[in-house]
Design a protein around this nucleic acid. Structure first.
Length: 271
DNA sequence: ATCGCCTCCTGCGCGC
DNA sequence: TGCGCGCAGGAGGCGA
Protein backbone atom coordinates (compact mmCIF):
# COMPACT_ATOMS: atom_id res chain seq x y z
CA UNK A 1 0.00 0.00 0.00
CA UNK A 2 1.45 3.00 -1.28
CA UNK A 3 2.66 6.13 0.35
CA UNK A 4 4.56 8.78 -1.54
CA UNK A 5 7.79 6.79 -2.02
CA UNK A 6 5.86 3.82 -3.40
CA UNK A 7 3.92 6.04 -5.80
CA UNK A 8 7.13 7.77 -6.86
CA UNK A 9 8.81 4.38 -7.37
CA UNK A 10 5.86 3.24 -9.45
CA UNK A 11 5.90 6.45 -11.46
CA UNK A 12 9.59 6.13 -12.27
CA UNK A 13 9.24 2.44 -13.01
CA UNK A 14 6.44 2.73 -15.54
CA UNK A 15 7.51 6.01 -17.17
CA UNK A 16 9.81 4.45 -19.80
CA UNK A 17 6.99 2.19 -20.98
CA UNK A 18 4.31 4.87 -21.00
CA UNK A 19 5.67 8.31 -21.83
CA UNK A 20 5.73 9.01 -25.55
CA UNK A 21 3.90 5.75 -26.22
CA UNK A 22 0.59 5.35 -27.95
CA UNK A 23 -2.20 3.51 -26.19
CA UNK A 24 -3.05 0.56 -28.44
CA UNK A 25 -5.89 -0.89 -26.49
CA UNK A 26 -7.81 -0.29 -23.29
CA UNK A 27 -9.31 -3.18 -21.36
CA UNK A 28 -11.50 -2.55 -18.33
CA UNK A 29 -12.67 -5.56 -16.34
CA UNK A 30 -14.20 -3.70 -13.41
CA UNK A 31 -15.31 -0.09 -13.38
CA UNK A 32 -16.38 0.10 -9.74
CA UNK A 33 -13.39 1.52 -7.93
CA UNK A 34 -13.71 4.33 -5.35
CA UNK A 35 -14.84 6.42 -8.29
CA UNK A 36 -15.98 4.57 -11.38
CA UNK A 37 -13.59 4.20 -14.28
CA UNK A 38 -15.35 6.18 -17.04
CA UNK A 39 -17.27 4.00 -19.49
CA UNK A 40 -15.66 5.84 -22.38
CA UNK A 41 -12.08 5.20 -21.21
CA UNK A 42 -11.34 3.05 -24.27
CA UNK A 43 -12.66 5.65 -26.73
CA UNK A 44 -10.85 8.45 -24.91
CA UNK A 45 -7.45 6.79 -24.89
CA UNK A 46 -7.17 4.30 -27.72
CA UNK A 47 -4.78 5.56 -30.39
CA UNK A 48 -3.71 8.51 -28.26
CA UNK A 49 -0.14 9.17 -27.24
CA UNK A 50 0.76 9.72 -23.60
CA UNK A 51 2.75 12.95 -23.51
CA UNK A 52 3.86 12.87 -19.89
CA UNK A 53 3.60 11.16 -16.56
CA UNK A 54 3.93 12.85 -13.22
CA UNK A 55 3.16 12.38 -9.57
CA UNK A 56 1.33 14.94 -7.45
CA UNK A 57 0.91 13.84 -3.84
CA UNK A 58 -0.07 10.17 -4.15
CA UNK A 59 -1.82 10.79 -7.45
CA UNK A 60 -0.44 9.84 -10.84
CA UNK A 61 -1.16 12.04 -13.82
CA UNK A 62 -0.95 10.75 -17.37
CA UNK A 63 -0.98 13.68 -19.75
CA UNK A 64 -2.59 13.45 -23.18
CA UNK A 65 -3.14 16.22 -25.71
CA UNK A 66 -6.87 16.35 -24.90
CA UNK A 67 -6.83 15.83 -21.12
CA UNK A 68 -5.38 13.84 -18.24
CA UNK A 69 -5.88 10.47 -16.66
CA UNK A 70 -5.88 11.00 -12.91
CA UNK A 71 -5.04 7.90 -10.89
CA UNK A 72 -4.70 7.01 -7.24
CA UNK A 73 -3.60 3.63 -5.84
CA UNK A 74 -5.69 3.85 -2.68
CA UNK A 75 -4.67 1.39 0.03
CA UNK A 76 -3.90 -1.65 -2.06
CA UNK A 77 -3.36 -0.53 -5.66
CA UNK A 78 -0.32 -1.27 -7.78
CA UNK A 79 0.72 -0.96 -11.40
CA UNK A 80 3.01 -3.21 -13.35
CA UNK A 81 4.11 -3.55 -16.90
CA UNK A 82 3.66 -7.05 -18.30
CA UNK A 83 3.54 -8.85 -21.61
CA UNK A 84 0.01 -8.87 -23.02
CA UNK A 85 0.24 -12.67 -22.98
CA UNK A 86 0.46 -12.66 -19.22
CA UNK A 87 -2.69 -14.16 -17.69
CA UNK A 88 -4.82 -11.74 -15.71
CA UNK A 89 -4.51 -12.02 -11.98
CA UNK A 90 -7.38 -11.77 -9.62
CA UNK A 91 -8.09 -8.09 -8.83
CA UNK A 92 -6.48 -6.73 -11.97
CA UNK A 93 -9.10 -4.23 -13.07
CA UNK A 94 -7.79 -2.60 -16.22
CA UNK A 95 -4.95 -2.59 -18.70
CA UNK A 96 -3.52 -0.09 -21.14
CA UNK A 97 -2.01 -1.82 -24.14
CA UNK A 98 1.33 -0.28 -25.11
CA UNK A 99 4.16 -0.79 -27.59
CA UNK A 100 5.91 -4.15 -28.07
CA UNK A 101 2.92 -6.19 -26.87
CA UNK A 102 3.23 -4.83 -23.38
CA UNK A 103 0.46 -3.76 -21.06
CA UNK A 104 0.21 -1.55 -18.01
CA UNK A 105 -1.99 -3.46 -15.55
CA UNK A 106 -3.73 -2.09 -12.50
CA UNK A 107 -4.17 -4.42 -9.52
CA UNK A 108 -6.22 -3.35 -6.51
CA UNK A 109 -7.89 -5.91 -4.20
CA UNK A 110 -9.66 -3.40 -2.01
CA UNK A 111 -10.66 -1.11 -4.88
CA UNK A 112 -10.04 2.07 -2.91
CA UNK A 113 -8.07 3.44 -5.84
CA UNK A 114 -9.44 5.57 -8.66
CA UNK A 115 -8.76 6.22 -12.34
CA UNK A 116 -10.66 9.05 -13.91
CA UNK A 117 -10.45 11.45 -16.82
CA UNK A 118 -10.26 15.22 -16.54
CA UNK A 119 -10.04 17.93 -19.15
CA UNK A 120 -9.35 20.72 -16.65
CA UNK A 121 -5.79 21.57 -15.72
CA UNK A 122 -5.27 18.78 -13.18
CA UNK A 123 -4.17 21.16 -10.42
CA UNK A 124 -7.66 22.67 -10.60
CA UNK A 125 -9.39 19.34 -10.13
CA UNK A 126 -11.38 18.97 -6.90
CA UNK A 127 -9.16 16.10 -5.79
CA UNK A 128 -5.95 18.09 -6.21
CA UNK A 129 -7.01 21.66 -5.57
CA UNK A 130 -6.79 21.66 -1.81
CA UNK A 131 -3.65 19.59 -1.40
CA UNK A 132 -0.77 20.85 0.70
CA UNK A 133 2.82 21.20 -0.47
CA UNK A 134 5.04 18.38 -1.69
CA UNK A 135 7.22 17.36 1.27
CA UNK A 136 10.40 17.18 -0.80
CA UNK A 137 10.03 20.64 -2.27
CA UNK A 138 11.55 23.72 -0.75
CA UNK A 139 8.29 25.45 -0.02
CA UNK A 140 7.47 22.77 2.56
CA UNK A 141 9.27 24.61 5.33
CA UNK A 142 9.57 24.17 9.06
CA UNK A 143 8.15 27.63 9.62
CA UNK A 144 5.06 27.00 7.48
CA UNK A 145 4.48 23.64 9.17
CA UNK A 146 4.91 25.25 12.58
CA UNK A 147 2.39 27.98 11.76
CA UNK A 148 -0.10 25.34 10.60
CA UNK A 149 0.03 23.62 13.96
CA UNK A 150 -1.00 26.70 15.94
CA UNK A 151 -4.28 26.20 17.80
CA UNK A 152 -4.71 22.69 16.39
CA UNK A 153 -5.98 20.32 19.04
CA UNK A 154 -5.62 17.09 17.13
CA UNK A 155 -2.53 14.96 17.51
CA UNK A 156 0.72 15.83 15.83
CA UNK A 157 0.61 12.60 13.84
CA UNK A 158 -2.90 13.19 12.52
CA UNK A 159 -1.83 16.68 11.55
CA UNK A 160 1.24 15.39 9.75
CA UNK A 161 -0.85 12.85 7.85
CA UNK A 162 -3.43 15.41 6.70
CA UNK A 163 -2.93 15.87 2.94
CA UNK A 164 -4.13 19.46 3.24
CA UNK A 165 -1.11 20.18 5.47
CA UNK A 166 1.53 18.28 3.53
CA UNK A 167 1.01 15.47 1.04
CA UNK A 168 2.45 12.01 0.90
CA UNK A 169 3.13 11.30 4.57
CA UNK A 170 1.17 8.15 5.32
CA UNK A 171 1.04 5.95 8.36
CA UNK A 172 4.48 4.38 7.99
CA UNK A 173 6.50 7.49 7.26
CA UNK A 174 4.63 9.57 9.83
CA UNK A 175 5.64 7.02 12.48
CA UNK A 176 9.22 6.90 11.26
CA UNK A 177 9.78 10.62 10.99
CA UNK A 178 8.22 11.27 14.40
CA UNK A 179 10.56 8.68 15.88
CA UNK A 180 13.59 10.22 14.25
CA UNK A 181 12.48 13.66 15.40
CA UNK A 182 12.06 12.34 18.97
CA UNK A 183 8.43 13.47 19.10
CA UNK A 184 5.49 11.43 20.38
CA UNK A 185 2.75 10.98 17.81
CA UNK A 186 -0.03 11.62 20.32
CA UNK A 187 1.04 15.10 21.44
CA UNK A 188 -1.25 17.93 20.49
CA UNK A 189 -0.15 19.53 17.25
CA UNK A 190 -0.27 22.91 18.99
CA UNK A 191 2.37 21.77 21.47
CA UNK A 192 4.98 21.65 18.70
CA UNK A 193 7.81 24.14 19.12
CA UNK A 194 9.63 25.96 16.34
CA UNK A 195 12.64 23.78 17.05
CA UNK A 196 10.48 20.65 17.01
CA UNK A 197 9.08 21.66 13.66
CA UNK A 198 12.57 22.22 12.32
CA UNK A 199 13.65 18.73 13.31
CA UNK A 200 10.43 17.05 12.20
CA UNK A 201 10.30 18.66 8.77
CA UNK A 202 13.93 17.76 8.22
CA UNK A 203 13.24 14.13 9.19
CA UNK A 204 10.16 13.92 6.95
CA UNK A 205 12.28 15.02 4.03
CA UNK A 206 15.12 12.65 4.86
CA UNK A 207 12.89 9.64 5.49
CA UNK A 208 10.93 10.09 2.28
CA UNK A 209 14.05 10.69 0.23
CA UNK A 210 15.72 7.60 1.70
CA UNK A 211 12.62 5.48 1.09
CA UNK A 212 12.46 6.58 -2.54
CA UNK A 213 16.11 5.71 -2.92
CA UNK A 214 15.39 2.23 -1.53
CA UNK A 215 12.49 1.71 -3.93
CA UNK A 216 9.75 2.14 -1.35
CA UNK A 217 8.61 -0.07 1.49
CA UNK A 218 7.29 -3.56 0.89
CA UNK A 219 5.19 -4.75 3.82
CA UNK A 220 2.89 -7.19 2.16
CA UNK A 221 2.44 -6.78 -1.53
CA UNK A 222 3.95 -3.57 -2.82
CA UNK A 223 6.18 -4.04 -5.81
CA UNK A 224 7.67 -1.73 -8.39
CA UNK A 225 6.66 -1.74 -12.04
CA UNK A 226 8.81 -4.78 -12.72
CA UNK A 227 7.47 -6.65 -9.72
CA UNK A 228 10.52 -6.21 -7.52
CA UNK A 229 9.87 -5.31 -3.89
CA UNK A 230 11.08 -2.22 -2.07
CA UNK A 231 13.76 -2.55 0.53
CA UNK A 232 12.85 0.15 3.03
CA UNK A 233 11.05 -2.17 5.47
CA UNK A 234 14.30 -3.46 6.89
CA UNK A 235 15.09 0.08 8.01
CA UNK A 236 11.88 0.73 9.92
CA UNK A 237 12.47 1.95 13.46
CA UNK A 238 8.98 1.69 14.93
CA UNK A 239 6.26 0.97 12.38
CA UNK A 240 4.56 -2.37 13.03
CA UNK A 241 7.01 -3.14 15.85
CA UNK A 242 4.66 -3.03 18.86
CA UNK A 243 6.20 -4.80 21.86
CA UNK A 244 9.55 -5.25 20.16
CA UNK A 245 12.66 -3.55 21.54
CA UNK A 246 13.46 -0.09 20.26
CA UNK A 247 16.35 -0.34 17.83
CA UNK A 248 17.98 2.61 19.53
CA UNK A 249 17.43 2.07 23.27
CA UNK A 250 15.77 -1.34 23.73
CA UNK A 251 12.57 -0.05 25.34
CA UNK A 252 9.43 -1.85 24.12
CA UNK A 253 7.73 -0.03 21.26
CA UNK A 254 4.19 1.06 22.07
CA UNK A 255 1.13 1.04 19.89
CA UNK A 256 -1.71 3.53 20.21
CA UNK A 257 -4.66 4.34 17.98
CA UNK A 258 -4.83 7.93 16.73
CA UNK A 259 -7.44 9.01 14.23
CA UNK A 260 -8.43 5.36 13.65
CA UNK A 261 -4.88 4.49 12.66
CA UNK A 262 -2.30 2.46 14.54
CA UNK A 263 0.59 4.53 15.74
CA UNK A 264 3.90 3.26 17.03
CA UNK A 265 6.47 5.01 19.17
CA UNK A 266 9.26 4.50 21.64
CA UNK A 267 8.20 5.91 25.00
CA UNK A 268 11.81 6.54 25.89
CA UNK A 269 13.20 8.07 22.68
CA UNK A 270 10.12 10.16 21.91
CA UNK A 271 8.91 12.97 24.17
C1' DA B 1 -13.20 25.86 10.51
C1' DT B 2 -12.18 21.87 13.03
C1' DC B 3 -12.69 17.49 15.06
C1' DG B 4 -13.61 12.68 15.38
C1' DC B 5 -15.88 9.02 13.63
C1' DC B 6 -17.57 6.26 9.53
C1' DT B 7 -17.17 4.50 5.18
C1' DC B 8 -15.67 2.09 0.88
C1' DC B 9 -13.47 -3.34 -0.05
C1' DT B 10 -10.83 -7.76 0.20
C1' DG B 11 -7.36 -10.61 2.32
C1' DC B 12 -4.64 -12.18 5.98
C1' DG B 13 -3.20 -13.73 10.41
C1' DC B 14 -4.56 -14.76 14.79
C1' DG B 15 -6.99 -17.22 18.63
C1' DC B 16 -10.26 -20.58 19.67
C1' DT C 1 -9.25 -27.27 9.55
C1' DG C 2 -12.45 -23.96 9.92
C1' DC C 3 -14.53 -20.02 11.76
C1' DG C 4 -14.97 -15.32 13.43
C1' DC C 5 -12.61 -11.36 14.49
C1' DG C 6 -9.66 -7.38 13.98
C1' DC C 7 -6.63 -5.19 11.31
C1' DA C 8 -4.31 -3.28 6.97
C1' DG C 9 0.28 1.49 3.47
C1' DG C 10 -5.92 6.38 2.09
C1' DA C 11 -8.86 9.88 2.36
C1' DG C 12 -13.56 11.90 1.39
C1' DG C 13 -17.78 12.85 3.87
C1' DC C 14 -20.67 13.42 7.69
C1' DG C 15 -22.78 15.56 11.92
C1' DA C 16 -21.59 17.98 16.00
Amino acid sequence: MPELPEVETTCRGIAPFVVGKTVRKVTVRRHDLRLPIPRNFPQLLTGKRCLGLERRAKYLLLRFAHGHVLGHLGMSGSLRVVSEQEPWRKHEHFALGLAHKRELRYHDPRRFGLWIWTTEPPEHHTLLRKLGPEPLQDHFTAEAFYQGTRKRTRSLKEHLMDPHVVVGVGNIYAAESLFLAGLRPGRRASALTRHGSQVLVQQVKEVLAAAIQQGGTTLRDFAGADGTPGYFAQHLWVYDRAGKPCRRCGTAIRQKVLGQRSSYYCPSCQK
